[in-house]
Write a protein that binds this DNA or RNA. Structure first.
Lengths: 339, 339
DNA sequence: CTGTTAGCGCGTTCAA
DNA sequence: TTGAACGCGCTAACAG
């Protein structure tokens, strides 16, 4: 490894000097331009090897006017749902030769604002956002600079492509399973109704009841839950009602886990239904009805919609599209084990 | 929103023209340089607002010679361990005003090679890598261009800072707990011995036995497991041995989950000990001994080591450092004595 | 087949 | 307090 000028990484000029050609020729070799003689190419490549030269992608994208990067902003990377989504995005991006710049908002609107601005400043060619809230003015502003796709939650007050889960039908079907099984006193533990998923899943829960000519009992409904501990407390609360519910519907994986804790600690065998599959659900030995869906697929579809927009430049005439990822209801039965 | 020249994002020149100053003045305002009159600053800022101008970080970093980005390469983002690690890295990076470029190798050495090269080409200022294998020549090459810190697995054939889990002591302590509780026939389900963690955790398992004057039975040892399904099959295999083991030691969360499945499906109450905590471990109603540690902290420490190197430039005289994150042994459900 | 010129958007240096 | 010139590393467009 020969050392070059003053400490920094070697540049094309360093390579050019060593190979005794011009920088332009080096550039041509590196992009596999056919118009270079075999001998020259050979010399250049060996100089590249000797210096440990790597093309500077920063300079390259400045010159070419495209970073080949897309931004991804999620609310909580610690939630497997979002890490799977991120993998789906990366998978499709990689197929297109794009890199993904991944950011985490921790559900904080202010942080989302900063991160989105930052991604625009880094000239990503587009971004996929799981919006932290229904305040989306900053997203609308960013959209004036680049294409955007929302994931998991829909646009509010703006017009964008988005990829959603079939929240309504998933909730309705899972609830219907409980009703089919004879449950009539079903508690509801929900995430905030201000979130799209919170609203839709509650609608599905309600709709299933209506189809059975029933109406959920207000006193068994708790909404606005955001963490496992609160979910557990609310589950205990609802379970202690009179008459005790025979089943609980939970709107996401954290709430389901809180409910599992409550049921276990109380020594009950209450049936649970909930959104989001989780590992070991099948060996918990509890009667579980899980609304499952492919989180990777949400990421893949979002990436496809985005890349499609990027390829078609600023053709703002094309209408926005909305993709819906289907849900599947899984049934895990409790109880069947010998002691 | 006034439109600017030909479609592209507005540049400093556009802002300068609108504010009737030079580009230099715009640059000064944007960096809060004190030498600008209040009136001029005002005009510039309003022009920025009107055009929706954002500074081009690509051009900026080219000029300044520093991308303010660090690379992070993990083997499997779908494993919560690595997403937590990533969050730890991002946390510290954010404090230092750095962004994180996150890549996933899916445990494929070839992909690791490409991604590392790519990050170097993007001129990240340093990188944190969870190496996929003990083949690390490509990492050594990259280290000639920028500082590197390895996480979770140590350097092999090169000299780098790294952050490890206290694999040996964690495994020894958990095994000792089983032995203390009276278990004498303990099965071992391990990840590949070619991986550092696989080797260390096996050493710990062995050492605990030696301290009790015992030696693990070869026929109850299975190594080289990489997925849940295989782990479950091997667990069944070991559990069917004669005499049946009263406990199993598992070297990571996936293997533990396979063992949980096997134990449950066989209707046993075999005690399980394993590395990596997981959600709902406490309500599984199985006797579990879990070696837990703070994955975020690994990321934080790795980021600190890396940023420290970056700040000290190419001062290669400083010796490499090794940080070890401690483990805690958790006990769920008490442990029933063997008969 | 190869080299020269020019400029992507920005910030440092020096001069006014 | 402000501006002009130059160059970071690279490549498109045009010579030769």
């Amino acid at each position: 490894m020969t050392s070059n000028r003053a400490g920094g990484a070697p540049t094309m000029r360093d390579v050019a000097a060593l190979a005794q050609v011009s920088a332009m020729t080096v550039s041509r070799v590196l992009k596999d331009d056919p118009g270079v003689s075999a001998g020259t190419r050979e010399r250049v490549l060996s100089a590249v090897g000797e210096l440990g030269y790597r093309r500077n992608e920063t300079a390259r994208s400045l010159r070419l006017g495209g970073s080949r990067m897309i931004g991804l902003v999620v609310t909580n990377l610690a939630n497997p749902f979002y890490s799977r989504l991120a993998l789906g995005v990366q998978e499709v991006a990689a197929e297109e030769g794009m890199r993904v710049l991944l950011s985490n908002t921790a559900e904080q609107l202010e942080r989302e604002r900063e991160l989105v601005e930052d991604l625009v400043s880094h000239r990503v060619e587009g971004m996929i956002v799981v919006p932290a809230a229904s305040r989306q003015e900053h997203l609308a502003r960013a959209m004036e600079a680049l294409p955007m796709v929302l994931a998991a939650r829909p646009p509010e007050g703006m017009d964008t492509d988005c990829v959603l889960v079939d929240d309504f039908h998933g909730a309705r079907e899972a609830t219907a399973r409980l009703l089919d099984a004879g449950h009539r006193d079903i508690g509801f533990l929900g995430n905030p109704p201000t979130l799209y998923t919170g609203a839709e899943r509650f609608r599905g829960f309600w709709a299933a009841h209506e189809e059975f000519g029933l109406q959920p009992a207000e006193h068994r409904v708790r909404r606005g839950l955001t963490d496992i501990a609160t979910a557990e407390a609310m589950a205990r609360d609802v379970l202690s009602g009179e008459p005790a519910p025979t089943a609980l519907f939970c709107t996401n994986n954290r709430i389901t886990q809180g409910a599992v804790r409550a049921v276990r600690r109380l020594g009950l065998q209450t049936a649970l239904a909930g959104f989001d599959n989780f590992e070991l659900a099948d060996v918990l030995q509890l009667p579980l009805t899980i609304v499952s869906y492919d989180a990777d697929e949400i990421g893949r579809q979002a990436a496809r919609l985005l890349i499609d927009r990027i390829k078609h430049g600023s053709d703002t005439t094309r209408p926005s599209r909305r993709a819906v990822v289907p849900t599947t209801v899984l049934q895990y039965d409790g109880m069947p084990r010998p002691e």
